[in-house]
Design a protein around this nucleic acid. Structure first.
Lengths: 348, 348
DNA sequence: GGTCAAAATGGGAACGTTCCCATATGGTGC
DNA sequence: GCACCATATGGGAACGTTCCCATTTTGACC
């Protein structure tokens, strides 16, 4: 009944092909060019005949590559994380690597434990989208030589590659767009920035740019569960006797929360501008549509895996940063009702 | 600079504790009760002193448990898959297992390859949310004794545990709700059912139930990319000189597509009823809100992992099926405008 | 044709576990 | 006091690789 439970080993392939196990091993560990073509042919013949497949466990044991890439995510529900995960998974698949997915649920203890587990599997690289506070466990893993990429974060004391959005460009694009559309009073809403460097970066860029342009701007950092604080801030922002207010959301989660509250409070989208970083699948479904800055998540995921591959093959160079620019997806939420369809494209 | 690169082995712990490696091994492979308390204390002391952590590679090599659970997903972008993934990941974490995530991108070849890879890691169990057509690779893996759970699918010739939504109950709840709300002409929209048994099940239940109740009902199965076909079907459904039409969507992806087209075509939600299986985070954001049947995804994921755990410990019993009932989340899209807030709760 | 280096191949010892067996140790019943 | 069994412990051989080193073959150059 059972399919052949037994799995062919390298030794059996060697016997079948009439060569030594060392040669078979060489064939499968990327040293084919050292083998004569005749030998290569005999090996593939024997291997396919026996249905041989290398055992990554045994390989990883001896110190060879484990074929495993770890991904540590703080919140598996975050659409941004999922989108990146897609890119990472795809890149891994193409590189013949497997993905171990870990979710820390924003819990530092879980994170530590997951990290220990990942390192015990001798992962060849780690993609991290977590670790708000200084994570000693993360630093230790990086110091021990595991290639590591930080997604949209940078960590004090951890000098590793970073990949993510070009926050300065993104914020500038957002401000440009909002100003072009005629909004003159801006509110930036973010989750608490202490936990993630990219939040910090976006917040700071917004503040300095608005100051530099002498815009009427404010910022708000809060936990999204806190409806009341958000409602109050929105009211404060909107009730100002100023013609045109807009809200800029620091990420997709914020966009969702703000859109929800604005709908609840009855603020008309467009008249009150709304714009978010991160594209979301439902952005064109809310009534006038929500304008977003779309991140090239597949590219980012790919870049992360590329970093890891490079680092595990070459000797360690200095830490690098890949920053990607977003794409503006304009929709109705940043279209003021007075400005009719005749486009006022005149440069100022 | 480097943290101690060297990792303690079972042998070093044994030496440190002055016991044999066998005893240490026993301690870590769940045979603690066979050890005297004195020995247990010495082992744990030595292990913590050395920072010992078992090497799962070596363990898996010898035939022991690999600590790995695989999850094969056809489309990592599908919110349902992601939601289940969350539950599965959480359950794994609590059980001390790690999750290897594989995405087949709806490609049978990729699926085959991923399956081979997973099996080469000697996974202890596999959660599958893919495999439309009869997958020989899947059947083979199941036959070889790997515990396996099918999510919302059943496969001919593969007799394994299944976990998912109670489709009959869900469809009945949906029909009940729509009829209660006064909709009399129903359209069921689904993706092509040939690829997934749950689509088939929902479609069939809808047809038989509507026939049994003598309802004016139709079904539509199509690829979601095909806007034109969808638009045409919606128009055909709605333009009927009948007072109250409603559309029931077979899953979240369908709901998104239909909502998009209805918005584009200008059909007012509520007047034309809309209801979907699968809760989506943006359902309350579209104007009157979209009524859904929410699946207990965390429970389903947990149940899947539970199945695997049971099956890998106990001897194989007959395949079981866990079917979960959904929860109705009523919103404006199934609230007819004529029926004002005074609820017409009179039973017919 | 002999020397030497390069290329091609093979044998054995690890890697860190688990498991089978063997060996103490302690208690029980006659 | 001796056979007996249960309970604790330990030693060695696997598991399937890779890697170091040794050996053989090849070919090129004087």
């Amino acid at each position: 009944m059972n399919q052949r439970q037994h799995r062919a080993t390298i030794l059996e392939v060697a016997r079948e092909a009439g060569v030594s196990k060392t040669s078979v091993s060489r064939y499968y560990s990327g040293e084919r060019e050292r083998l004569s073509t005749a030998m290569q042919e005999r090996i593939v013949a024997a291997a396919t005949a026996l249905g041989y497949q290398p055992n990554p466990m045994a390989r990883g044991l001896k110190g060879g590559p484990s074929g495993l890439i770890g991904m540590l995510v703080a919140d598996i529900h975050n659409p941004y994380s999922v989108a990146i995960m897609h890119g990472v998974e795809k890149a891994c698949r193409q590189a013949g690597l497997s993905l171990m997915l870990c979710n820390s649920d924003n819990d530092l203890d879980q994170e530590r434990q997951q990290l220990a587990l990942l390192s015990s599997y001798r992962i060849e690289g780690l993609v991290v989208n977590a670790a708000g506070r200084h994570s000693d466990a993360l630093a230790q893993l990086a110091a021990s030589g595991t290639p590591m990429v930080l997604l949209d974060r940078s960590l004090k004391g951890v000098d590793v590659d970073e990949v993510g959005l070009d926050n300065a460009t993104a914020i500038d694009m957002a401000i440009d767009h909002l100003v072009e559309q005629g909004y003159t009073r801006l509110l930036f809403v973010s989750e608490p920035p202490a936990q993630a460097s990219s939040r910090q970066a976006r917040l700071e860029r917004f503040e300095t740019q608005c100051r530099a342009r002498a815009l009427d701007a404010q910022t708000l950092a809060l936990e999204l569960k806190d409806h009341q604080a958000l409602d109050a801030a929105l009211a404060r922002h909107v009730d100002h006797p100023h013609p045109s207010c807009a809200v800029l959301c620091a990420n997709g989660q914020v966009t969702l929360a703000v859109a929800r509250r604005m709908k609840y409070l009855g603020y008309p989208l467009g008249e009150i501008g709304l714009m978010g970083i991160d594209e979301l699948e439902w952005c064109d479904l809310t009534d006038p549509g929500i304008t977003t800055l779309e991140q090239p998540t597949d590219l980012i995921g790919q870049a992360a895996v590329d970093c890891l591959k490079q680092r595990s093959s070459h000797q360690a160079t200095a830490a690098r940063r890949h920053m990607f620019a977003p794409t503006l997806v304009p929709r109705g939420s940043t279209q003021r009702p007075l400005a009719t369809s005749s486009s006022p494209e005149i440069p100022s």
